[in-house]
Design a protein around this nucleic acid. Sequence first.
DNA 1: CTAGGGTTAG
Length: 723
Amino acid sequence: MPLLLLQLRGLLSRKPFLNPCFLYSLGSAFSFSYIPDSTESHYDPLLKSADGLASLRQIHSPLVVSGFVSQSIHLGAQLIAGYAKYGEPTSARSVFDHLIGCGNETSSFLWNTMIRAYANAAGCSYEALELYSLMRRAQVSPNNYTFPFVFRVCASSEAGSLILLGRVVHGEAVRAGFDSDLHVEAALVHMYAKWGEFGDARKVFDEMPVKGLVCWTAMITAYEQAEKPEEALSLMVEMQREEGLVPDSVTVISVASAVGQLAVRKLAGSVHAYAIRNIFLQQIGVANSILGMYTRCGDAQKARLVFEKMVERNVISWNSMLSGYTQNGQASEALILFDEMNDSNVEANAVTALIMVAACAYLGSLRLGRKFHNFVIDRNFTIDKNLHNALMDMYAKCGDLKTACEMFNSINPSMRDASSWNVLISGYGMHGHGRETLNMFSRMQAEGVDPNHITFTSVLSACSHAGLVNEGRQCFDEMQKLSVAPEAKHYACVVDMLGRAGKLQEAFDLIKQMPFPPNDAVWGALLLACKIHGNKELARIAADKLFELQPGHTGYYVLMSNIYAASERWGEVGNLRQYMKDKGMKKPAAFSVIEFGEEIHGFHTADREHPYWEEVYREVEILAVKLKMAGHVPDLSCTLHDMEEEDKELALNLHSEKLAVAFGIMRTESGMTIYLTKNLRVCNDCHSALKLLSHIFDREIVVRDGNRFHHFQGGVCSCNDYW
DNA sequence: CTAGGGTTAG
């Protein structure tokens, strides 16, 4: 027994934390010489502890030199698996070929190992399948180990549809008598389900006399992946009725995902409880999926609770939480959390950047958006198509259409797909540039890019903002010609467009003709139009539907009560307000954000928390006087009705956008453009006040409200009072 | 001595 190996083994047994590979390389470095031992057991621990390609190669070479690799298929198999693990399938194959050439060609075990190596390595599906057919040609019988590998390759999506081949191999498995093996069957279920062949998957599944947990989970996951969450969950219930079958952590992950798709909070709670009871939540994967389930159920608070309790967090945990906040309208929470992430031991990646860029787009903060753009550049993240589009979208949504266009132009024309066009098309639309939108829309088609459902939503909404009714109608017809099926959101845009233009009856007729039940967006558009044009009869119809569809949505109640107020139906107004009070509904708080230089300031309605609120209130008074002198008549209908006239005027002056603009006028140099973002739509009074202010102070004021952009300049607004 | 089910960020 060579001395070095003795030492190695001794060290290994006593100090398992010392990596024998390290010692081994030490040995080669100091040119210790030894005669290779002829038992496998000396190499076995070395191979087992190899922790990288380099150490694997170091062990491999003496094995070759000694000719030992030819003698042991066991060690050879370890080398094959090792090389495959470190992304070297070619090296794995040469070991395999060598062993086969040394008289091991009939060993199923070796063939299996090599097929598995290919199946595990990325992009080697073809090689795996080729090897399987070579195996058969060499008259080596595939066994219960072979088939699962092959089916897994057939299930992988990288190599086109391999389902046909999978069926053939399925037949071979049946003929070889391995079709009732638990592992083979699970792999079959998985393969068929991956390709959407639920009939075949179910057939294999249903015909299994004994189904293990793995098979059930495979089937449940299949439904979940095919976005059939109800089927997934009912299958899980069915499974639990079987003796001794209990969901494990893998099952829980799939079930959590299915519940997330359904977005049912109650179910989310029970999955969470189950995971806690079984101590699955300590596993990062389970915790991440529970977290994601909550954010998809719209419960960012619960998600945060899970996040806080996690023993370990990876970049997916952070990104899920960040995106959860953004998706649930709490983008500012995402910004705060991002700072915490920077202080943590987890590095942000390009996906993090994308989420943060989307958060800035949501907030409408150009300054922060630029900050994240620089972040992307500083970190050298690759800007793929998605990130590029997200950045463009952010610039468009933050009012910087120029940069958005530059980014669009920087894309190689042949690389522009529907989503690149969509960003600009919706960008123009939000700014009320109807003609430019239509222009881009035809350019897109001229360049051979097919518009999709998002394109049409953007174009229709642009037509609505710009009052281009005929063009909008045409576009709606066109989409059906191009066989893009109109969805509720498209109808909502058209109803909005017709309604704003005063064609209420046409809008209502369109709703009645819809091939599926109208949703809240459609009725909401009609209700808004009714408010603009003072039609309380149609409004009542729309409102009744809305109260039924979205009983908790405060905005519709407010809108309806405003409509009643406008026609002085105070009794009805009182009823609605009482109802809202009883149900504990509150009007969503208006909020405006203004940005200049390095500063960002937010104001609520009648804000007294802002550090300079007293100065701002004084400035607002001054502005009110100037406005009156310029002929502004306060539109008292924009306030609650049960106030004294004087209080109404005061209340109007304290609208969040007026506070923000007053602050902007106070704090920025004359002539500087004022940028602000508001979460709700601008009211009539603020709209006309802002127009006048832009004239009085000769300043451009850019406002992004809950619906679109308004550019106030020289006393007029880019929306032509049409919003 | 090899094996079956894995979501979650975009």
